[in-house]
């Protein structure tokens, strides 16, 4: 017998790591909740422009949104592949997810720089401050997710990713989908409801 109580014997029959991660996601809800609240209570309070409708590019962001949705699809396919022990497709879907994440981030970098060129910075007005802090925090989360995905991909290349430790991919997936649903909210609240 080993002391490995956490993985082999649990009171609720649930994986401890998964439970901890769901608690973490719950906690993240309040992090983004606070940021979105700040955005909403400061909406329309900027004393100088540019204002949201001057600058937000809906067609461009729709593509980013589509990109992130597709990355979520790749992610679940990667998990399904790992669970059935199909390492070959796991590698493909993992790297595809990461690449779509990188594509999203490049889009955000482009968006931010073009906003700065059009005169919207952190310091310009409340819209700039709340917008950049909210979407920037989301972008930072995507960055962490990309690093995580690439790490799993390297593990897959090393042949270390088996059906037995599929839960590590599942948890990474939970994180990735959570970042996606936060974007679903941001896309609506920030971009579409101006």
């Amino acid at each position: 017998m080993t002391i490995a109580a956490a993985t082999h014997r649990t009171s609720m029959g649930l994986d401890s790591r998964k439970m901890a991660f769901w608690a973490f996601i719950g906690s993240e809800c309040l992090l983004f909740g606070s940021l979105i609240s700040t955005y909403l209570v400061y909406k329309g309070r900027s004393v100088v422009g540019p204002y949201p409708h001057d600058i937000l590019n809906i067609p461009f962001t729709s593509v980013s949104t589509f990109d992130l949705l597709m990355s979520s699809l790749m992610m679940v396919l990667a998990l399904a592949a790992v669970q059935r022990g199909d390492l070959k497709w796991a590698k493909v879907w993992l790297v595809a997810t990461a690449l779509l994440g990188i594509f999203f981030l490049s889009g955000q970098v482009y968006e931010f720089t073009s906003f700065v060129r059009e005169g919207l910075t952190l310091q310009t007005n409340l819209f700039g401050a709340t917008f950049f802090v909210l979407t920037g925090t989301h972008g930072a989360h995507v960055t962490v997710g990309v690093v995580w995905l690439l790490t799993l991909w390297v593990r897959a290349l090393q042949g270390q990713l088996t059906a037995a430790n599929a839960v590590t991919v599942e948890i990474c997936g939970l994180y990735w989908h959570f970042v996606d649903v936060i974007w679903i909210v941001i896309f609506t609240v920030v971009y579409l409801i101006q």
Binding site: Y42, R45, V47, Q123, A129, T130
Partner: peptide
């Protein structure tokens, strides 16, 4: 970074 989240003159609100 020079934002104005809590600065009234820029539309912000210390009450937040």
């Amino acid at each position: 970074f020079g934002t104005h989240f809590y600065l009234t003159s820029a539309g912000g609100d210390p009450v937040l």
